[in-house]
Structures are given as structure tokens and as C-alpha cells.
């Protein structure tokens, strides 16, 4: 059985199509990533799956329960961590946990084995008010609260946004630990580099799913030739390279620009055309998820 099944879900806010005919399946025990920029419709999809929002069209089920008909059942078996920190800032760490445990009619000790590895890290601050915690700790507390009733499916909406690089990496390690407990995780992120930490991902943009696959298969499916170029004047380099024959695409990518080229691209010719630019360096580059995303988005 699939933990999450989404069939032709659409949702419109006024004239904006937040979700446009989305289909998706997430297997039980899978860590599935929704990757896409802001405004891709990730949060809307989460809100529909957590029964906070009703879809206009289509069907969706979570853990076998229909989001429209069996919404009460879904609320018992899912954990939701919204993008914004939304615990009670004026309650302490411990009080927040106890409160959410009571909301779900359980006790902390019932699911302690599940949250222990995460809770251990914030336990020294258990009497501190949640509002006074650092960003990384807030996120850990929010995760603990979302797990307090031992959910079958965990929804994490941009859990790593606004968190430092070390904490982000730690957070993904924690998710890997949860996977071992057979919890299905649907996680969204705007960071393409985090995609590789998921088993399968869906790239989405403007309410549509562009592709769904494992991160490796997505990268392998990239069939264009790709170069990384850099020079002293990066801005000039960008505008000039776009005009050279044989160049399909050129876009900024970290410290360099990525150059997508036609089959008949000649490196020497390209360097020659741009000879007025100082310190031009051209290297073959291996494609990443972001390159694939840009390619699919432009199509």
C-alpha cells in the first residue's frame, strides 16, 4: 500500500493556480522530497494532505484514508511541521511537548524511544521558553512535537529554511534515523542540494510536478553536455556567452556559470569568441539536480 496517493489534485486561489492536476505516490516508509522554488505549490499540497485545506478537484489519501471523507482519521496518524515555527513561544520546551502529547491523547514516555535521539539534544534547555530557543533548537523541538504521537506519516514543510548549514546536515541525519523506524516522510525544500538525501524526489514548479524519480536517475537522465565557465568579469561573461553559436543556455551556478551546449559545440571556438575576457576557464561539469530542474523548467 502507498502511504500517500495523490490523483489529479487541483487547487486555485482566485486566479492563481496553486496546484494544477498533481499526481504523486509515496511508498510506505519512504523519505520523499518535494523540491521546488517558492510558489511551487508545496505548502498548498501539504495543507491539503494534512486536511487543513480542501482540494478543488481530485482525490488524495494518506495512510489509506481519504483527505475529504476520513479527515478525522488522518489527523490522528500524521505529524505536521509547518514551515513557520508554530509552537507556543511562551511555553517551555517541556510544556510544549506535554501539551502536544495531551492533544493527541498520549504521554511523552509512550513515544520517547522515537524522539529520544532528537530530544536528548534539547533536553538541557527543557525549562526554557520555546520563543527563547535558537533557530536550530526550535526546529528540533518542532520535530519532537510532530513526532510525539508516533505518526505513521510525517509532513515536513521546508524544515531547513533559515537554518545554518551544520544544523541542516544534522537535521537530515535525524530524518534518516526516523526512516529506520518505518515512518513515511514527505519533506519539501527549496534547496536542490538536499534532494540527494531523499530516496525519491519530485521536482515541482508553478503548481505542476515536472518529474518524479530517484535523485540518481534524475541526474542520469540529463543528456546535454555541460561546462562550468568562469572569468574575472562574471557578468560580462554571462551575457557574452549566451550569444555564442552552439550555446543553448548559460546561467549562474554558484561560483561559476553553467553552460549547456549543442552537440557540435567546439570549446576552442568558444574560447576564441570570448578572447576579450580575461582569465577565461572552461571545465567539463557533471550535471546536478539543479541543472535538471532548470532544463525542465525552461521546457
Amino acid at each position: 500500500m502507498n502511504a500517500i496517493e495523490i490523483e489529479n489534485i487541483s487547487k486555485q486561489f482566485g486566479k492563481v493556480k496553486a496546484l494544477d492536476d498533481v499526481c504523486l505516490e509515496v511508498k510506505e516508509g519512504e523519505c520523499f522530497g518535494l523540491i521546488g522554488p517558492d510558489g511551487a505549490g508545496k505548502t498548498t499540497l501539504f495543507r491539503i494532505l494534512t486536511t487543513l485545506l480542501s482540494p478543488d478537484n481530485g482525490k488524495a489519501s494518506v495512510n489509506g484514508f481519504d483527505v475529504k471523507r476520513d479527515y478525522l482519521e488522518i489527523r490522528k496518524c500524521v505529524g505536521y511541521m509547518p514551515g513557520r515555527f508554530s509552537l507556543y513561544q511562551d511555553l517551555s520546551v517541556e510544556e510544549n511537548l506535554e501539551f502536544f502529547a495531551a492533544l493527541f491523547n498520549t504521554k511523552i514516555k509512550d513515544s520517547y524511544s522515537l524522539i529520544e535521539p532528537i530530544y536528548k539534544q534539547i533536553e538541557p534547555f527543557k525549562t526554557r521558553r520555546a520563543g527563547k530557543l535558537s533557530g536550530g533548537m526550535k526546529q528540533k523541538l518542532a520535530l519532537c512535537c510532530a513526532l510525539i504521537h508516533y505518526p505513521k506519516v510525517l509532513f515536513l514543510d521546508e524544515p531547513t529554511t533559515g537554518v545554518d548549514a551544520v544544523s541542516r546536515s544534522e537535521f537530515w541525519d535525524m530524518l534518516a534515523g526516523l526512516k529506520a523506524k518505518r515512518i513515511t516522510i514527505l519533506v519539501s525544500t527549496p534547496y536542490m542540494d538536499e534532494a540527494s538525501r531523499c530516496e525519491r524526489i519530485a521536482l515541482c514548479n508553478e503548481g505542476k510536478i515536472l518529474t518524479t524519480n530517484t535523485p540518481k536517475n534524475i541526474v542520469d537522465g540529463y543528456n546535454d553536455e555541460l561546462y562550468a565557465i568562469s572569468a574575472d568579469n562574471m557578468f560580462e561573461l554571462l551575457s557574452l556567452s549566451r550569444k555564442v553559436k552552439g550555446v543553448k543556455e548559460c546561467y549562474p551556478f554558484g561560483e561559476s556559470h553553467h553552460l549547456v551546449v549543442e552537440k557540435d559545440f567546439d570549446k576552442e571556438y568558444f574560447a576564441n569568441e570570448l578572447n576579450q575576457i580575461k582569465n577565461l576557464q572552461i571545465k567539463k561539469a557533471s550535471p546536478s539536480i539543479e541543472d535538471m530542474f532548470i532544463k525542465l523548467m525552461k521546457r
Partner: peptide
């Protein structure tokens, strides 16, 4: 405004 009502809404309360 604080978004805490979301957490209440997804709970079975």
C-alpha cells in the same frame, strides 16, 4: 497570527 492554530487544527482535538 503565530500559526499555532495550525498545530491545533491538525490534531484530533
Amino acid at each position: 497570527e503565530n500559526g499555532t492554530i495550525e498545530q491545533i487544527n491538525v490534531s484530533p482535538i
